[in-house]
Write a protein that binds this DNA or RNA. Structure first.
Lengths: 330, 330
DNA sequence: ATGAAAGCGCTAACAC
DNA sequence: GTGTTAGCGCTTTCAT
C-alpha cells in the first residue's frame, strides 16, 4: 500500500505539501504541484480513507437502515439515495433489520461507532429516544416514512393518509360499501397513517368503520395471504380490500384465488407502492405509486446538506407526491 | 464520543489493559476485569471501528459489487451474504455498477482504498487484470458467476450451462424445433455459458443452430421486450424462446402479448433465475431456479475463511445446484 | 499482571 | 510557499 509518505519522498516535499496539493486547501507553487502530481501518478497513490476518516471525523459513508432489501420498494429507494451520494464519493452501508426493534437499535448503534456521516432510517419499531446516540455524536439522520420526531431529524415520506384515502374512495366510487383493510404491523407509523386515510374515506362516505375488517399483516406477501383468509372466513365478508402495500395485496390475491373467487368481480383489491410486480400480476393491481427513488434521492440530498453544514435549521418534512395507478383489480 | 482513554481513566488502569480486557488477548486479573467492565458499562463505551481498522488493517467491512440492486436476483444474494457476515460483526458496502466497466473498476479501486476486508464481485465487463489492485492489497475476492480467473479468487456460481441445456431440452421435449434465445450482453460469462447450454441441447437433438435466433438483451425487462420484437419480425420465427434471465423473459412476454399472440400456444417462453415475479406473471413462467441466497451465503463464508486465514489454498470453485421449475409458459 | 510508548495514514495548527 | 509536529482512537511491542 502506497502512503502519502511515499509520495512525499518521491516528490521531494513534505507530507503536508502533498496533502495540501491534493486537497487544494492552501496554495502550492506550480512547480511543486507538478512534482506531486507526477509522483501520485507514478506510484498510483490513493489516500487511505480510513485514516482520513479518523483524522477528519468524516468517513465518507452513510448507513441505509431498512427492514428488508428483498422488498422491491427498497432497492429503488437505495438507488435513489446512491444517486444523490455518488458524486460526493460517498458509500452506503446496507442494513436489513426485518423491522425488529433490537436489530434496528443494534445497527443504529453499530454505525454510530463506525463514524458514519449520516443515516437514512426506515424505522418500524424505533422511537425518538433510540436515535439519541446518533444525535449525540452529531450524525444527521433522515427518517423515511415514520415515527421519529426530533427537531434535527428531517423527514421524507409520501402522503400515506391522502394516498390511502384516495384508494378507499376509489373503491367506494366503484360501489363497494363493505371494505376491508389489510394493514402493516401495529404501531408502525406508515400503517397508522394509511389506516387513518382508510377511516377518513369511510367517514366522508358515511360508512361505518368495522374493526373486524381491519387485519394486520406485516408488509409481506405471506401475511397478506393469511390476512385475506381471515377476511374471507368472516360471516359478513367485505367485497373489496385495501392493502397497506403491494406485497400484501399480492398475497391477498393468492388467498382469493385459492378460495376460487374472481378478482375483481367477487373481491376488489387495491395495493400501495406500485412495485414492478404490481403490473405483472393478473389482474394487474390497482395501486398508489409510492415514489421510492425520489424519497431516497431527497433523503440523500438532505443528508449531504447537513453533513456539509449547508443547512443547519430545524426539521424539514418533505412530503413527496404519490400518484393513483388505475389497473384491473377493482 | 467516549474513547478508550476515558474508560482507562475511570477504571484507574491503562489503555493497554482496557484494550486487552476487551479483546481477551492477554490475561487480566479478576479485579481489573470487573473495574474495566464497570467503566465500559457506565460510560457506554464502544470502540471506534475506524481507529481499530486503521491500526489492525481490518475494517470489518466487505464490498458487494453488483450490476443493479433493483434486479430482484441481487437483494436475495445480498441477504444471503449478510447472513454469513453478520455474526462476525461485518458490514457491507453496496455498489451498483449497472454492468459498466468504468463503474465496476471505479468501485473496485475505491473499496480497496477503503481497506475493505473482502469483496464479492459480480463482474460483467471486468477481467482478471482489473482485480490486481485488490489482490496486491491482499484483499480476498469472491467472484459470483463469471469471468475472473485467478488462483486466489474463489468462484461461486450456478451451473449455467447445465441449467440452460435442461431448459432448452425441455422445450425440445415439448415438440419445439425452432427455438430462439434472448441472451444477456456479449462477453458476459453468464451469457456465454447459458448460450453454450442452449447450443449443446440443440446439438444433441440434431437441431441446427441459427445465429439469427439469438438476440442480445442486457438482462433487463425492456431489452427482453425489444429482443422478442426482433424475433417476432423474423420471416421464419421461432415457436419457443429461452431467455437468459426472468426479467428478459417477462419483457419477452410483454412483446408477445403486444403482438396479440398467446403464451404458450403461439410462443413458449422460458426464463432463468426464478425471481419472485416469475410466479406472478400470467401464465406463470417456467424457469430455472438460481440459488441466489445460497450463492451469497457461500461467498460470505469463503470470504471470511480467507480473511481469518482459515483457508489459504488455491481457488475454490463452488457450483451451487439449480433446479428446474415447471410452470405454465411452455 | 500491567504500563509506557510507538505508530497505523492522514490532516492541521503553528512555525518560518 | 513550505515544513515540523502533534494527534485522531486504537493495538501492540517491549519493559517491568
Amino acid at each position: 500500500m502506497i502512503t502519502i509518505t511515499d509520495v512525499a519522498l518521491r516528490a521531494g516535499v513534505s507530507k503536508t505539501t502533498v496533502s495540501h496539493t491534493l486537497s487544494g486547501k492552501r496554495p502550492v507553487s506550480e512547480e511543486t504541484r507538478r512534482k506531486v502530481e507526477q509522483a501520485v501518478q507514478d506510484l498510483g497513490f490513493r489516500p487511505n480513507i480510513l485514516a482520513q476518516g479518523l483524522r477528519m471525523q468524516r468517513s465518507q459513508t452513510v448507513a441505509l437502515i431498512i427492514p428488508d432489501i428483498t422488498n422491491p420498494f427498497y432497492p429503488v429507494l437505495a438507488r435513489g439515495l446512491q444517486h444523490a451520494l455518488v458524486e460526493q464519493g460517498y458509500h452506503t452501508f446496507l442494513c436489513n433489520t426485518d423491522g425488529q426493534r433490537e436489530q434496528e437499535q443494534a445497527f443504529l448503534d453499530d454505525v454510530v461507532h463506525r463514524q458514519v456521516d449520516g443515516i437514512v432510517l426506515v424505522p418500524f419499531q424505533l422511537t425518538t429516544e433510540a436515535i439519541e446516540g446518533a444525535l449525540a455524536a452529531n450524525i444527521p439522520v433522515v427518517s423515511i416514512d415514520t415515527l421519529i420526531d426530533h427537531p434535527y431529524v428531517d423527514i421524507v415520506r409520501p402522503d400515506d393518509t391522502q394516498g390511502a384515502r384516495e384508494a378507499t374512495e376509489y373503491l367506494i366510487a366503484h360501489g363497494h360499501r363493505r371494505i376491508g383493510m389489510i394493514n402493516g404491523a401495529i404501531g408502525v407509523a406508515t400503517s397508522e397513517r394509511r389506516l387513518a386515510g382508510y377511516r377518513e374515506a369511510l367517514e366522508r362516505a358515511a360508512l361505518v368503520f368495522d374493526p373486524q375488517l381491519v387485519v394486520r399483516g406485516n408488509f409481506v406477501r405471506q401475511e397478506g395471504r393469511e390476512a385475506m383468509r381471515t377476511l374471507l372466513a368472516l360471516e359478513h365478508r367485505p367485497s373489496a380490500v385495501f392493502c397497506g402495500n403491494d406485497l400484501m395485496a399480492i398475497g391477498a390475491m393468492d388467498a382469493v384465488r385459492e378460495a376460487r373467487l374472481v378478482i375483481p368481480q367477487d373481491m376488489a383489491i387495491m395495493g400501495f407502492d406500485d412495485i414492478d410486480a404490481a403490473s405483472l400480476v393478473t389482474p394487474a393491481l390497482t395501486t398508489v405509486f409510492n415514489p421510492a427513488y425520489e424519497l431516497g434521492e431527497i433523503a440523500g440530498r438532505y443528508l449531504l446538506e447537513r453533513i456539509f453544514n449547508e443547512y443547519e435549521g430545524e426539521r424539514r418534512c418533505m412530503i413527496v407526491p404519490h400518484r393513483f395507478i388505475e389497473r384491473d383489480s377493482v
